[in-house]
């Protein structure tokens, strides 16, 4: 690999080349390559996200400019007759997501607490793989299950039809559970062992330790887990489309609104993308909905990201 100087004139450059080779050898040349690739990948991701947003803006902005805002956020979505009110779709997404959060957060957090604080190691070994399997089930399969099995069940609960926001919430809750569980378990794991030791040493019970010491210490991580769970729920499409009935309806306020059919933003895009002629107002409006979804998930992720930053500056405790 190393070169030997042939003549005095080329001496300087060959020496520096051989020095680089020496350094490459010393520090494994492939590390340079890999570092370069990673850097490229990282930068290109930013670049790509920027491009996606530009594209969304280009296709979706006309909707916000051409449709009067009063109508755009109006109560009626019936695009084939030129009624582009996306308010029912936003309400639909909101109801389904909130329902999912109400179901998934308590379940997810308690599962994480059990896994992280209470369960003996052998139970963890069994439970964790199952949670990972849950996250690996394709959403369309869950959607199919929901359509065939869950919807009739919901109807039997007394809803006028089985295809309701609640059915969608149940499915979404199960889809966001693995996210919530694994991230909140990480957050609990990051709480220094000394905290628990100290709490137990001054006579706190295990429950008091968890509730008063571990949970508050892991608070920001738990919030991130919930946020990412919400992000997972709001972006889900196919399963929701199959079970929520897709009626662009604004249910009357109250707990009964969970048991009404709704149409989410994602399902609307998926159901109607195929029918639109490129460049039509309907096409632009679907991209406009895409922009709104993008902004919502961006907001959720950046809030979560800020919290991650706050958390990672804390001291990580070594438990094992």
């Amino acid at each position: 690999m190393s070169t030997t100087p042939i003549s005095g004139e080329t001496n300087v450059s060959t020496v520096s080349v051989s020095m680089i080779f020496q350094r490459l050898k010393a520090t494994n040349w492939y590390e340079f390559v890999i570092e370069g690739l990673i850097r490229l990948a990282g930068v290109s991701t930013i670049f790509i996200v920027g491009l996606i947003f530009l594209f969304l803006l280009r296709e979706g902005l006309p909707a916000f400019l051409d449709i009067p805002l009063r109508q755009l956020f109006g109560p009626r979505w019936y695009p084939i007759e030129g009624r582009f009110g996306i308010w029912p779709l936003m309400v639909g997404s909101f109801i389904v997501t909130v329902g999912a959060v109400i179901i998934a957060v308590p379940l997810g957090l308690t599962t994480a607490i059990y896994l992280g604080e209470i369960a003996p190691p052998w139970q963890r070994e069994i439970l964790k793989p199952f949670i990972e399997v849950l996250s690996g089930i394709p959403s369309i399969v869950l959607g199919f299950l929901g359509w065939v099995a869950l919807a009739p069940l919901v109807q039997r609960l007394g809803a006028p039809t089985g295809l309701t926001a609640f059915t969608g919430s149940l499915l979404l809750a199960y889809m966001s559970l693995p996210t919530i569980i694994s991230i909140s378990e990480d957050a609990l794991y990051a709480v220094p062992k000394e905290y628990r030791d100290a709490a137990l040493a001054i006579g706190a019970t295990q429950w008091q330790t968890i509730w008063r010491v571990v949970l508050p210490a892991a608070r920001s991580g738990l919030v991130i887990a919930v946020m990412l769970g919400i992000g997972r729920a709001i972006g889900e499409t196919m399963a929701v489309m199959m079970v929520t009935g897709n009626a662009a309806n604004i249910p009357p306020l109250g707990p009964g609104m969970l048991f009404q059919p709704v149409r989410t933003m994602t399902a609307t895009i998926a159901a109607e993308m195929g029918e639109v002629a490129k460049g039509s107002l309907h096409y632009n409006t679907l991209f406009g909905i895409g922009i709104i979804l993008f902004l919502i998930t961006l907001a959720i992720n950046s809030i979560a990201g800020r919290l991650v930053g706050a958390q990672s500056s804390r001291r990580r405790g070594g438990q094992l």
């Binding site: 109560p75 009626r76 007759e81 009624r83 897709n246 009626a247 159901a271």
Partner: peptide
């Protein structure tokens, strides 16, 4: 037009 509570099936 159709009532808003109409379920739209794919």
């Amino acid at each position: 037009i159709f009532a808003p509570q109409t379920l739209l099936m794919p």
